[in-house]
Design a protein around this nucleic acid. Structure first.
Lengths: 340, 340
DNA sequence: AAGAAATAGGGAACCGGTTACATATAAGAA
DNA sequence: TTCTTATATGTAACCGGTTCCCTATTTCTT
């Protein structure tokens, strides 16, 4: 691979002049510029990013850290980030922490080596919950780097973040169920170690209280955001004597688990029990299952995160900024038929 | 950020000695090593990847290029790659070309700047089909870099690749339909500019011929691998007088399009028409739609790609290696009920 | 016509590591 | 005891760019 020195020699000029052509800086005569450009083309000269980074003391890459890229939620977010990053001529270094806080730590180290300009981080867990988490929290603080957090909130969270209206959307879910004529409801709750899970549960409970929907304690089902657990819990739940009129599932995985259990128990959502879930369930209508859900635009979440990061990189001193992605309600009538 | 020089000064040694400690190379006394290590810890020394890359003339990153990371197929592949890359201590630079050959070109440039050790590439199209594609093909050739292609094949493809048994799986699809008692079948074909689409169509046709399943020309529906187009084509098709006993859809998106059209036309798959598709349709059973399909393990595809790349990076001179991911059949009985 | 300003380009230090080579001391072999 | 070898560390060049500073022409100004 040809270097700037060689280009310079071939053109009979100094490295400095070639550099000026590369960066369109300083003064270079049209003639010289043309000659240098031609040589660069002819010899396929491509400057070394490492050398540029080193001498400029600044890179054009940002780090993306997600718990699992195979999860469509994160894949969509990365998609959104990628679109904008492309426009800003930034490269993405991607890491998948596999939901491991240990990996997350390692990965942040690697990003520091790369001297990335900033990081968009989907934490594998709420920091502040475990000892390891707190340590990581401090490590992050000491990085003194533009950081944007995606979809996680916790006490004393100091970074910019893109969050979802967990509380509000869940509050609304309760209202929707009530509006559809239901009197009592159950909740398939997430892992309550996570603030987003608590927010969704509380939002729903508060919403229910506000509109007079009864949520009995034994109808709050302890899930952990996974399909498997939700299936188990739902299975048992559906055998109970007196089911509530409706059920609210706190995320997509649990919705699927619930639906499977319901199918096996021959309980039809939208008929035998009203249903609404948080997170989009794709293609349910294609399969002929009218399903109500409340959701957000994940792709947009990614874009917003990238926008925040850009702002932060430009104005490191600005105050913390937290964006909330609004929820959208998609009623497929499933709970309305359940009124009677 | 503290540098190696500063660490050296603090420890009262030369940069070289610190470097030896960093890389566990050469001779360093236990005492000196301890002192240096302590200082590195205390001052949070983190070596600059750019400097290392520059001096070693070799990086620890590989490039991943996919047409759309939001597509679960690629997300799963990246997941697989990421797992292995982590074990090999390689960083991933990810680019999403948004199915644009122009972007792909730009992105490959960027990867060369980064001096990546190798590239795993999911081409946005078959090269050799368009003028731009051919150009890109040559650009790739001239990179003289370890490259692994994912899920694309075309004449004179010179790189290592991980491919799917497109022909074979489609052949099998025909057999399955025949076995289920069907006599005639239609195909929802993909974009025939792509070899994978041609392979799937031909595989199915050959399979049908082999087992005596009749595929009439007018029952070969021209799709382009998207849901929208498949929906349109299917909609029209389902209104025709005499439907074949069964239908084979060449990919997941088209399957969904077909299912939507079928639902609207009140035609039930597995009852009014037998159905089998290529690619996994997740959760269909949860929604109570028993669906037969033939699929592959995408995650495994990613892992295999990473394995190939590693091998290629180690032995650049080896002969071309092409891995084929086998298909799996998942029969949910949908076509069996259609026999009568 | 003379001084100021704009244009063009070179020299060399610098970014933060690695590494070949040189040197010095300590330990082991003859 | 002396020569060899292993151990420990320093020196300086190098990787491929960027950029500050300096010099030399031109081109304006007045």
């Amino acid at each position: 691979m040809i270097t700037i020195k060689e280009v310079a020699d071939l053109a009979g000029v100094s490295k400095a002049t070639v550099s000026r052509v590369l960066n369109n800086s300083g003064y270079v005569s049209a003639q010289t510029r043309k000659k240098i450009t031609e040589i660069m083309e002819a010899y396929h000269y491509i400057p070394s990013a490492a050398a540029v980074t080193l001498s400029r003391q600044e890179s054009r890459t940002i780090g993306i850290v997600v718990p699992e890229i195979g999860n469509s939620f994160y894949a969509d977010i990365v998609h959104g980030i990628s679109q904008l990053a492309d426009e800003m001529d930034l490269s993405l270094v991607l890491f998948d922490t596999q939901n491991s806080i240990k990996k997350e730590e390692k990965v942040l180290q690697l990003l520091q080596r790369q001297r990335v300009k900033g990081i968009i981080l989907g934490p594998s867990t709420d920091y502040q919950e475990t000892q390891e988490g707190k340590q990581l929290f401090h490590q992050l603080l000491e990085m003194h780097l533009p950081i944007v957090i995606v979809d996680r909130d916790f006490p004393k969270m100091p970074w910019d973040a893109v969050l979802y209206e967990n509380y509000e959307s869940s509050f609304q879910a309760a209202m929707e169920l009530k509006n559809a004529g239901n009197k009592t409801a159950g909740v398939l709750a997430g892992n309550l170690h996570l603030k987003i899970a608590r927010d969704r549960l509380e939002g729903f409970q508060d919403g229910a209280r506000a509109c007079g929907l009864t949520v009995r304690k034994e109808h709050i089902l302890p899930g952990n955001f996974t399909m498997e657990e939700a299936y188990k819990v739902s299975k048992k739940f559906l055998e109970t004597e007196k089911l509530p009129d409706a059920i609210y599932s706190c995320n997509n995985q649990m919705t699927l688990g619930f639906l499977r259990a319901a199918r096996e128990a021959k309980i039809e959502t939208g008929k035998d029990i009203a249903f609404i879930g948080n997170d989009r369930i794709e293609y349910a209508d294609i399969f002929g299952v009218p399903l109500s859900y409340i959701c957000r635009d994940n792709y947009e979440m990614g874009r917003k995160a990238m926008q925040l990061l850009e702002k932060r990189m430009q104005f490191p001193k600005n105050g913390q900024e937290i964006l909330r992605i609004p929820y959208t309600v998609s009623l497929k009538g499933s709970e309305k038929k359940a009124i009677d």
